Structure formats: C-alpha cells, structure tokens
Simulated assay, not measured.
Amino acid sequence: MKLVANITNYVFDGKFKSLSRFSLVGISNTLIDFIVFTIFQGLIGVNYTLSQVLGYSFGVVNSFIFNKKWTFQGGKSNKKIYHELFQFIIVNIMSLAITLIFMKLLIKDFNFNVYVAKVVVTFIAQITNFIAYKLWVFN
C-alpha cells in the first residue's frame, strides 16, 4: 500500500505533476464533452458540428476551473483572472476550430464514423491545449 502511495505522490506531486493532473482533468473534460456531444448528436439529432461546439464548450468550463486551481495551481504570474480567462478562451477557440476542421476532413473525406473522428480530434485538442496552457495561459 505504501508503494502505491509513493507512486501516486511521485506522479501527482513530483516530476510529472502538471502532465498527470492535466491528464486527469482532460479525462473529466472528455467525459463531459462526449456525454453532451452524444446527447445532442445521437439522441436529439443535432448536426455533428453544432454538437461538437456544445460538447466542447461544456468541457472547456470544467477545464478552466480545474486546470487553474489544481493542474497549474493558479500559475506563478501576476496575471489577473480575466486575462488568464481571455487567453484560455483564445486557446480553446483555436483548438475548437482545429477539431472542427479535422472532424469534417475525417468524416467527409475519409469516411470515418462520427464517433471515431471525435476520438481522433480529442487527442489532437489535448496536445494543443496542454502546450498552450503550460507555456502561455497559466505560466
């Protein structure tokens, strides 16, 4: 049991603190995103583009709160919260645009299933967001 506690402390409070915490927050964001996406696209029948925007938006709210408070612990900068929020929104608008472009490309040009395309673009967004949050938003 002590070994598990030591590993957990090393991963979440040690060298990989930001990345591991970002990953956990990302999992919760992704779950929220997929649930909202599925409700709108699969159950209600809303177009996948609008469903992507809605799902992504719900995940973004969760992401800002938990990445600011836990993953990057408010950052070490003297930035005001509205400045961080503005940067966060810019990053996520760019990330959303990237996901919409790739989603359309995968579905229309490569005949991917809408949910498979959703998984692929989610990974693309995660990589983009982690780099931008760490280097620009919460630095």
Rank of each mutant, 00 (worst) to 15 (best):
K2R: 15
K2Y: 13
T8L: 15
N9G: 14
Y10C: 04
F12S: 04
G14T: 03
K15S: 12
K17F: 01
S18N: 10
S20Y: 00
L24A: 03
V25G: 12
I27L: 14
T30Y: 03
I32Y: 07
D33Y: 12
F34W: 08
V36Y: 04
F40T: 14
I44Q: 03
G45S: 06
T49Q: 13
S51D: 08
S51K: 10
Q52D: 08
V53I: 14
G55D: 02
Y56P: 06
F58P: 04
V60L: 12
V61L: 14
S63A: 14
F64Q: 03
I65K: 02
I65A: 04
T71Y: 04
T71Q: 04
T71L: 09
Q73Y: 13
G75Y: 04
G75E: 06
I81K: 01
I81V: 13
Y82N: 10
F88V: 01
V91N: 06
N92Y: 06
A97C: 15
A97M: 14
I98A: 15
K104T: 15
L106S: 09
I107F: 04
K108P: 00
K108S: 14
N111M: 10
N113M: 09
Y115L: 14
Y115V: 07
I124P: 06
A125V: 00
Q126L: 15
Q126R: 06
I127A: 08
F130H: 05
I131H: 02
Y133Q: 06
W136L: 09
V137W: 09
N139T: 05
